[in-house]
Design a protein around this nucleic acid. Structure first.
Length: 490
RNA sequence: CGGGGUAUAGCGCAGUCCGGCUAGCGCACCUGGUUUGGGACCAGGGGGUCGCAGGUUCGAAUCCUGCUACCCCGACCA
């Protein structure tokens, strides 16, 4: 019992914390608010990156890289943008250290003060639009569809591994378009890419929607998001796509000549998902025994554990296992054979459950006699004994089955934890249980703020898919034509 | 940034209130042997400037002051 997890019912956030550390995904670093992503965690992130990158390229985007540092003057050009990020910026003021003459300690050289301070990017709109000014002159230069994979820094007061760290990894897309319509289409296209990635690869059901003014990105006209529900009933914003209008084009004077030769400001979008998705992945599917990873993102999809007493036995088992491995690899399945002799099988079983490996095979003397292998699936913890003959097809199907089962389970959970309410009392009652709450809202920021102040719940989004329906705002009683989603959020 | 808590071997902890000999325990690690179908057992062994910096004292893990990091609860945010 070397690695006991706190149970979810006992203390959900402790369970999350324990799990991230014990499953070897990440750990806290010596730097406040910054984490070390460990190889196993990074391997999952790399799988996410690879898939997303493929999807971006399939939709016409290319990658580039812009600087980590942003001159302060760039940053302050878009008023609401600065307003939104000012409180959480790390600032570089000097460029050199020196030995203190008296103490001999290393100190910041006061002589080496920068003429203009540099902001460490919390997001890159400003540096990118400053650059785009030189790249865009004609409608023929548009659309410009660029993505970058980068790290950003937001000086958070309170951090949690993956969910909120001072430095995090993400991708940020920044596109420029000739028309408003085209930019809006891009914004929507990307939110669909994100939703498709979340559902088909992370097995995470999400709701696509539009953010209320309060929750909108600083500098955006409209923010779209995908919202997922975690097992503790709290919502997690998992990806955002912004229609920026001409705000940044105007701030950075990015114009183009249209077909008629007339100067116009460019229309913009930006969009991103971050290592926060790792947190979503953990919290959506895992259980008290450890991670549950969807096969499509699991660094190891199948682990094989031999069970033996004598070395001669191991040799026979290994020969059999090698055949299985070859067949699985031919199918493109990632396999690990753990024949280490310093851990007992039981220990290995528990360890791979903790790490969320979707399928485990165990082969021992009994199986050798019968030509079988024991298969255990992580999502349901069910075990069965199957014939080795045709095992590769069986496992291929099993992985698909696990992928969809995990999704269905999360989908069912969300269904069970989604409720419609019509009065403020019902609303407050529903909040105790958590989950998505569909309610009428009068559309004003004042009402949203009051509800937040009284209950801590916020509007997660105005779902893109909705039915028009006559109703009254649960708070103000004013008429409303549609429901929005409220929830407690991360 | 406010309130609360924690910091002792790689990990988890006891010892701290009430200062005292050589700082313990479990897991992990090393050696040898027996084991192996759900976190093995026996025997032996290695590993610590007790978070950091000062102070009080004959003597500090223990008392005092300051600092740092992490966790929980708030305010802020992806």
């Amino acid at each position: 019992m070397a690695k006991e997890l706190t149970s979810r019912s006992e203390n959900y956030s402790q369970w999350y914390q324990d799990l991230v550390i014990k499953a070897d995904l990440a750990e806290n670093s010596a730097v406040r608010g910054c984490m070390v992503i460990k190889p196993y965690g990074y391997a999952i992130w790399e799988k996410m990156q690879a898939q997303l990158d493929k999807m971006f390229k399939e939709t016409g985007h290319v990658n580039a890289y812009f600087p980590l540092f942003i001159p302060k003057s760039f940053f302050s050009k878009e008023a609401s943008h600065v307003e939104g990020f000012a409180k959480e910026c790390a600032v570089v003021t000097h460029y050199r250290l020196k030995h203190d003459d008296e103490t001999g300690e290393i100190i910041v050289d006061p002589e080496a003060k920068l003429e203009e301070e540099l902001i460490i990017r919390p997001t890159s709109e400003t540096i990118i639009w400053n650059t785009y000014r030189n790249w865009i002159h004609s409608y023929r230069d548009l659309p410009l569809l660029i993505n970058q994979w980068a790290n950003v820094v937001r000086w958070e007061m309170r951090t949690r591994l993956f969910l909120r760290t001072a430095e995090f990894l993400w991708q940020e897309g920044h596109t420029a378009h000739a028309t408003m319509q085209e930019a809006i289409e891009e914004t929507e296209k990307i939110i669909n890419v994100y939703a498709s990635f979340a559902e088909n690869f992370m097995a995470l059901p999400v709701i696509k929607g539009i953010k209320s003014a309060n929750e909108r990105f600083a500098g955006a006209i409209e923010t779209y998001s995908i919202e997922a529900l975690m097992q503790d009933g709290k919502a997690l914003q998992s990806g955002t796509s912004h229609f920026l209008g001409q705000n940044f084009a105007k701030a950075f004077d990015v114009t183009f000549s249209n077909k008629e030769g007339k100067e116009e400001y460019v229309w913009a979008t930006s969009w991103g998902v971050s290592t926060r998705l790792m947190g979503a992945l953990v919290m959506a599917h895992s259980d008290d025994k450890g991670l549950v990873l969807p096969p499509k993102l699991a660094p190891v999809q199948v682990v094989i554990v031999p069970i033996y007493q004598k070395n001669e036995q191991l040799a026979v088992i290994s020969a059999k296992v090698d055949e299985i491995i070859a067949k699985l690899k031919a199918k493109g399945i990632t396999v690990k054979y753990d024949d280490g002799d310093n851990k007992k099988p039981g220990w290995k079983f528990a360890e791979y459950e903790l790490k969320g490996v979707p399928v485990r095979l165990a082969m021992g003397p009994r199986d050798l006699e019968n030509g079988t292998v024991e298969i255990a699936r992580r999502d349901t913890l069910q075990k069965s004994v199957v014939q080795i003959e045709g095992i590769e097809n069986y496992i291929e199907n099993l992985l698909d089955d696990i992928q969809s089962n995990i999704f269905n389970k999360a989908f069912e959970f969300r269904k069970q934890n989604t409720i419609k309410v019509d009065t403020y009392d019902e609303f407050k009652e529903a909040l105790k249980k958590g989950g998505f709450i569909y309610a009428h809202w009068d559309g004003t920021s004042e009402t949203e703020e009051k509800i937040k102040a009284e209950t801590k719940a916020t509007i997660r989004c105005l779902p893109l898919e909705f039915e028009e329906e006559e109703g009254v705002c649960i708070y103000s009683g004013k008429p409303s034509k549609r429901r929005v989603i409220f929830a407690l959020a991360y």
